[in-house]
Design a protein around this nucleic acid. Structure first.
Lengths: 239, 239
DNA sequence: CGACCGATTGAAGGTCGTCAAACTACGTGG
DNA sequence: CCACGTAGTTTGACGACCTTCAATCGGTCG
């Protein structure tokens, strides 16, 4: 156990100009002059599965660019149950609400070992005051976030549980951009899709029997995208 | 039928400095100097129930502040069904995605006779380049939109249809801030809550029998907030 | 008046939640 | 090495809830 996850996770300052995923991140189109407005070098941090980047209600003084891994944003309801609001991958921004100076709105929990760049709110604001470049990127991120949220709302409230699970798997496969696909545990799937763990389990078990999904490890599997796509579209065609 | 809704809806330019709801709108904290960056006076427009402000895919060259009335953002799915993504009231911004220069993401349809201020995208961008005041407001609006979307996602995917209808009515009552409450037709309620028109109708009919809701006109009713609150919280207590 | 649209109600069936139990994997300790 | 406990997954049975399909009712408009 580390006495302080965050402190120990700090790495040497990143060099934004040479960043390998620069095209994906918030600072994508900043000029060399723009970087001079940063008060301190941007720091990078690494977190493991289950660790939290921040909690709901924490004072928000930074936002984070996801360099690798997966993060879930979790919100708890008055009855003790929870809902997973979003899942963020490489290039996404975690904690955009920090710009509004109030409080973080969710718990940000690591799903898959992740690394981040920490962007202090003051720097973002200062940069934005002096340069129009960042505004464009911020607009795009906001737009992206809204658009994602709309898709979730549209798809995840539509159709049978089976269709929703199929869609979720396809969505997660997009995020990883490989043949293998991260598969959340059944409880998290329930939290994402608004179904019970049992229902999630039944459907995943059925997919396994139908060879639609094959687990390589507890949270990693290969999926048959064609079959899943068919399931998302129509009714159950039992072959 | 008007040959062109938009043209005829134009009113004389509004005087932003004297706007009665200035504290609510995007230009809330602009200075007198800031307004000099506007290329043309801000125009106001009025639309009636069923008219559209813009359609999904339209080229986005303006965003709109809701001065009065109600607007629904509608998205159609591949199977022909639709989902209502958000409902916007006084002070909300319609078409924020215009800033990202691509296309409107939804159909914006008037639910209740509404008036808007039209804010050209070029003006917004120009203003933002010259003044930091607008950025603060934009951030706040984005934040508000995201926050609303999260609440919808959380609440509307949780619990029985009856609880969801109850919550929706309370939510709509908040929007109007009076004893009377706008009540969408049953099909729209279905589109919002991801239930069928029949289910929506059954629940509203039951609420009417239980004196929880009383219609003043087809789309206007008084509601018993206490009883509705009880319903949103717990299981069905048939009295 | 008759057509039409939306709201309402009924009946039947399917899906999913609830409660419960068995099973697996994993780590601990005897 | 094996017994044991814990946590997550799977499976079963039952019933409530909601969808589907259909018919009826009420109001408006031509």
């Amino acid at each position: 156990m580390k006495p302080n996850q965050i402190d120990n996770a700090w790495q040497a300052a990143s060099k934004c100009e040479q960043c390998a995923i620069r095209h994906l991140v918030l600072f994508a189109n900043l000029t060399k002059d723009d970087f001079d407005y940063l008060h301190q070098p941007i720091k990078e941090l690494h977190l493991n599965v289950g660790e939290t980047l921040y909690n709901q209600g924490d004072e928000p003084n930074a936002l984070y660019t996801v360099r690798s891994g997966l993060v879930k944003l979790v919100s708890y309801l008055s009855d003790g149950s929870f809902r997973i609001i979003r899942i963020l991958k490489q290039g996404d921004i975690v904690g955009l609400e920090a710009l509004d100076n109030k409080a973080y709105l969710h718990h940000a929990v690591i799903l898959k070992t992740a690394s981040f760049c920490r962007l202090p709110v003051e720097d973002i604001k200062s940069l934005n005051t002096h340069s129009p470049h960042l505004f464009t990127q911020l607009t795009a991120r906001w737009q992206q976030t809204m658009s994602d949220a709309d898709i979730w709302l549209t798809i995840l409230t539509k159709g049978f549980a089976k269709q929703r699970v199929a869609y979720l798997l396809l969505h997660l496969a997009e995020k990883t951009e490989t043949e293998s696909c991260y598969v959340p545990n059944r409880e998290d799937m329930g939290g994402i899709l608004a179904i019970t763990t049992e229902t999630a389990s039944r459907i995943i078990a059925e997919f396994k029997r139908d060879r639609i999904i094959s687990f390589l490890s507890p949270h990693l599997a290969t999926i048959d995208k064609k079959k899943l796509l068919v399931i998302t579209h129509g009714k159950n065609h039992d072959a």
